[in-house]
Amino acid sequence: MKKLINSAESLVSDVLRGMAIAHPGLRVDHATRVIARAGGPVPGKVGLVSGGGSGHEPLHGGFVGRGMLDAAVPGEVFTSPTPDRILAALRSADSGSGVLQIVKNYSGDRLNFAMAAELAADEGHEVRTVVVDDDVAGADGGAGRRGTGATVFVERICGALAEEGADLAAVAEAGERVNAASRSIAIALSPCTAPAVGRPGFELGPDEIEFGVGIHGEPGLRREPLRPARELVARAMEPLLAGLPPGGGESLVMVNGLGATPLQELYVVLHETAGVLREGGLNIAHSLVGNYVTALDMAGVSITVCRADAPMLALWAAPVNTPVLRWGC
C-alpha cells in the first residue's frame, strides 16, 4: 500500500487539519470532527447536515457553505460517524428553525443518524431526515438501493431552498422529490485500498471491470470484460434509465470520478452519456464532471441522472459558495 499518510489512525484528523487551512470559510471542530460554516447557523434558515464514512472526499465537507450544507460530519474511512458526533453537528447547524439531515442509505449511517436524531429531539431540536437511495445496482438485495451520487443533488437543491427561507417540511419534501427523480450506477476499473486494511477490496485482471460497484471498495454486481466507453456507458445507462421516472425533458447529470480517474476519461463518458440521454428524450440542463463522490483511490466512474423539473433547475442555478461548488456569488 502506497499512500501519502502518517498513519491510518490519524488520517481523518490530518485531513480535517488540511481542510481547515485550505478553506477559511469552514470552521472545523477537531474534537467533534464537525465541519461547519464559519459564520455559524444562519438565523431563520433551516439547517442542513450530512455525513458518513470518510474516503468519499470532497463529500461531504467540500459541500459545506452558502447554498448547501451547514455542517458535515465525517466518520472513520468507510464507517458511519457515531451518534455523539452527529449530535454535535445537528446542534451546530440549528438556528432554531430545525435541521434536515441528509443520509445515504446504508445500515450503519441510518442507525447512527436515527440515534442522533432521537438524542437531538430530546434536547428540543426539530430534526427531519431524507434518506438518499439512488444506486440501481444491487437494489433487490433486501437493504434497498444504496445512496451515492444523488446526495450532491439533494444537498444542493435542499440547500438552495433553505437559503430562500423555506421551512423544514418544505426542504425535506424537496429532498425526497430530488431523490425520487435521481438514479446512479458505477463501474470500477480498479479496486481501492482502505488505509486500515492495507490491501485492495477485490482484484481485477488487466481486461476486466467490475460492474455495479458501490463507493466502499466492495465488489459489484458482476465482473465484465473491458469494452469501449460507448458500449460501457450504453450498458450502464440501461438499468439507470429504467429506474428513472418515465418521460423526457430536462436533466441534471453528474459524471463522477471514483478517485483515480483522469478527467479526460470523464469527459468521454459525459459525451456518451449525453448521446444515450438524447435518444431517451432527455436534455442535459446542467452537468458536473469531476471527483465529487469518490471511493479513495478507485479508478472508475459513476453516472447520476436527475430528471429535474423547473423548480429544481432554478434552485440548482441559485448562488452557491462551497469549497467545491461555487457559482452566482
Binding site: 446504508y106 445500515s107 445496482a137 444491487g138 433487490d140 438485495g141 433486501g142 437493504a143 444504496r146 458501490g214 466502499h216 466492495e218 465488489p219 459489484g220 454486481l221 458482476r222
Partner: peptide
C-alpha cells in the same frame, strides 16, 4: 445470501 447490510448489494456473490 445476504439480505441486510452492505453484503446484500453483492446478491448471489
Amino acid at each position: 445470501q445476504a439480505r441486510r447490510g452492505r453484503a446484500s448489494y453483492l446478491g448471489l456473490r
